[in-house]
Amino acid sequence: MFSVIDRDRLRDRVLDMASSDPRVVAGAVLGSLAHDEGDRWSDVDLMFAVADGVSVTELLEAWSRNLLRELDAVQLFDLASGPITYRVFLLPGCLELDLSFVPASNFGAGGPKFRLLFGEVVEKPHASPPSASSLFGYAVHHALHARSCIERGRLWQAEYWISALRDHALALACRRRGLDGGYGRDYDRLPAAVLEPFDDALVRSVERDELRRALRIAVAGLLRESSEARDMAEKVEGQLRELAW
């Protein structure tokens, strides 16, 4: 496994690439290392601004060729979000590198985990978290599909939907308490009294009775955490209970 020294060496090498490339005009650290030292398992997450008129795609491909050749990196996947392109790499020792490039006219903090290293930023509003009604609505959808999959005998797919339902209920619990529920980031910061009832929403085997039991517990947890979507919850609570009980 990678060491903190390995991680720091990778960060410094990528920043050297940026400082020697005139097409890169600004850079920032994102994620868990943006405002503190992170921990033993933190990865490297860097964003760079590309000079206006320069192709983000061409720059990303050129950098990728260097990383694959020099550092024995493996390119895992790309993710586009508006003008930003993210590319994720795996390096030896299970060290993850997240690189993102964006035109300079759009370079700025999209959330609190952003620390400018050099260059200038464009002030822009932080991305809004999902609304309570959206989270609740998705959870209801997942509950419906979980039950239909159980009845169809598609038990592994039912497990998928029950897990998704539980995750959205926990995201609602985070939202109520001012925590970040995205990707489960703050689930472990929820009070034990909130988390413990969800233990029983974990599916222990892909058998019909077990799936029905886990679905019932997950729906109960969703309803407990639905105060911010009360109007919608009151309209569908009876149907959810009919579905799960």
Rank of each mutant, 00 (worst) to 15 (best):
D98M: 09
K124P: 06
A201N: 01
P129Q: 03
H141K: 14
R7V: 03
L68I: 14
L240W: 00
G182Y: 15
G31L: 01
R166E: 10
L222R: 13
V29R: 10
E61F: 09
L240T: 01
L59R: 14
L79R: 15
Y86M: 03
G178I: 03
N106T: 12
E242H: 09
S163Y: 08
W41D: 09
R154F: 07
R166G: 13
H35R: 14
D39K: 02
R230E: 14
G119Q: 05
E207Q: 14
L135Q: 04
R177I: 01
A173S: 15
L116T: 02
A173P: 12
F114E: 07
D180V: 13
A18L: 06
S133P: 01
A139Y: 04
V54A: 05
G38Q: 01
V4F: 06
I217V: 15
R213F: 13
L15A: 09
R13M: 00
G27R: 07
G182S: 13
S128Y: 02
A229Q: 05
L135A: 07
R154T: 04
D36A: 06
E210V: 10
C174S: 00
C94W: 07
V56H: 04
S3V: 03
P22D: 14
H141Q: 13
V4T: 15
F48H: 05
D180H: 08
E210Q: 15
L95H: 05
D6Q: 12
W63E: 10
M232C: 09
A173F: 12
W161I: 02
N66V: 12
V25D: 07
A132V: 02
A146T: 11
F48C: 07
N66H: 10
H142D: 13
E58P: 00
M17S: 10
G110D: 12
W41S: 08
P103H: 07
V194D: 06
H168K: 15
A127D: 12
I162S: 03
D21W: 00
P125V: 01
Q157G: 09
P112H: 08
D12N: 10
A143C: 05
G27C: 07
V122W: 04
